[in-house]
Design a binder for these strands. Structure first.
Length: 157
DNA sequence: GCCAACGTTGGC
DNA sequence: GCCAACGTTGGC
């Protein structure tokens, strides 16, 4: 059994929210559309059983809204080969897919979202990637300590 | 809607 | 390999 790791996944709720995931078939979805190499590499290092925060970006307010579990490790993102798809990548070849996705399953929606503004006030989270100025990475690692801190905040509310 | 931060592209 | 131009992300 590989050691459990923690992550954070961003999604714009207008395109896919945690409620969409909760209502999805088997409460599971493929996390497609990642088109950034660093984010892709993080996905490739995910293991089944890893947990991730679900973050709503471009939302009011931007916030961590719940938890998902990785239920399938990285495999080719089919949307890269679909010319009608918004995330089509004409340079990616079938025999060497450039982009991967993982499958995630709904675990929990927090009773109250943990807003970005509120998280910025927590000293223990000051080094979090999410809070870095100009941070745009849509798939990020979260340390065990940061994970624990945020879970405590979620349960306190 | 603005704009800072960042990644990518392409000319040289 | 440099770097300006451009496109995108995402908070505000």
């Amino acid at each position: 059994m590989p050691k459990q790791q923690f992550w954070l996944l961003k999604s714009e709720p207008e395109s896919f929210s945690i409620d969409d995931l909760k209502q999805a078939k088997q409460q599971t979805t493929c996390w497609d559309g990642v088109r950034n190499y660093q984010a892709r590499n993080y996905m490739r290092s995910m293991n089944v059983g890893d947990l991730a925060f679900f973050y709503h970006s471009n939302a009011a307010p931007p916030a961590i809204v719940g938890i998902v579990e990785i239920v399938r490790t990285a495999y080719p993102d089919h949307t890269q080969f679909d010319s009608s798809h918004h995330h089509f990548d004409p340079k990616s070849k079938m025999e060497a897919p450039a982009w991967d996705m993982v499958d995630v399953k709904f675990v929990e929606k927090f009773a109250a979202p943990l807003s970005l503004e509120m998280l910025r006030d927590i000293a223990a989270l000051k080094d979090m990637e999410l809070l870095r100025r100009g941070s745009r990475l849509s798939v990020q690692p979260v340390t065990a300590a940061q994970w624990k801190t945020i879970i405590k905040l979620a349960n306190k509310k």
